[in-house]
């Protein structure tokens, strides 16, 4: 393989996030940022392919300048090159605009064979960006990978489904999104950390990406957030009492009735 591209998103460490009970929004102040955990799996998968078959691993992220911290960590883990797509006009992107912008960035990188994304971001949680990128680039996609194999220029992927997995083969280039099960991400090394401190981070703006301003950021986002709220919990329950065998039968009947 020549180039493997990994998309990483910087997210708040949700273990440490608190919710403002009045506005029902995340309190982001003072919350440390981390690499989206699934994206660490994506990077680990790329590094393992690199170790086996040889390749350059290029990490791409879209976001504000502070995302550079996440990119430096990626270098410390072993990424060969990192690119940040950053422009004021990218702000407020929904998944469509995010996918478009990332796809534009990827087009700038020549000769890519494989694009690996996380299954989903732990904050946005939509799992749409990976498939979105594949659509914009018009290449095949395989989501929820738990194993990636590579033989004779073809990718063999085990994809998690409800009661097992499917095996899917594709030619390259392709987009693959990965689950937690695929691997355990390595820790950055100290040497990597030193290297990361002075690593050059390429930053691309709208112009560099030859992006259409009407398709990026808030402008380019068809979805608009109208209101964020926690849905009220509808608590309605029924309690069966009496002889245990009778109540069990009643409960079973009810479950059948509700088709549970």
């Amino acid at each position: 393989m020549k180039n493997i591209i990994v998309c990483i998103k910087q997210v708040p460490d949700t273990d440490k996030v608190q919710i403002n009970r009045e506005t029902n929004t995340l309190i982001r102040e003072g919350v440390p940022s981390i690499i989206n955990p699934f994206d660490e799996n994506a990077l680990e998968a790329a590094l393992q392919l690199k170790e086996k078959f040889g390749a350059r691993v290029i990490v791409v992220s879209m976001g504000p300048p502070q995302v550079k911290d996440a990119l430096r960590q990626a270098v410390a883990m072993g990424a060969d090159e990192v690119v940040l797509a950053s422009d004021r006009s990218f702000a407020g992107a929904d998944t469509w605009a995010t996918s478009y912008t990332l796809a534009q960035a990827i087009k700038e990188i020549e000769n890519y064979d494989l694009i690996i994304c996380g299954k989903q971001a732990i904050d946005g949680d939509t799992a749409q960006v990976g498939p979105g990128i594949a659509e914009f680039l018009d290449i095949p996609q395989i989501t929820f990978a738990q194993e990636i194999g590579y033989e004779e220029n073809r990718l063999k992927v085990k994809r998690v489904i409800e009661n097992g997995y499917e095996e899917i083969e594709t030619e390259l280039p392709a987009v693959v999104t990965v689950t937690k099960e695929i691997n355990e991400p390595r820790y950055p090394s100290l040497k990597g950390k030193m290297k990361a401190k002075s690593a050059e981070i390429t930053v691309w703006d709208t112009e560099d990406l030859e992006a259409d301003e009407n398709k990026t950021g808030l402008n380019g986002s068809p979805t608009k957030v109208v209101k964020i709220f926690t849905p009220p919990v509808k608590a309605s329950n029924e309690i069966f009492t009496g002889d245990p065998s009778e109540t069990a039968a009643k409960l079973a009947g009810k479950l059948k009735e509700l088709k549970i």
Partner: peptide, 24 residues
């Protein structure tokens, strides 16, 4: 300090190091 540590570790046959992020 980091530079010194890396340098010293090399002297003492280190295989690899893990720099553990605070979150982990």
């Amino acid at each position: 300090l980091l530079y010194k540590i890396v340098e010293k570790l090399e002297e003492y046959s280190v295989i690899t190091t893990w720099d553990i992020p605070e979150s982990k």
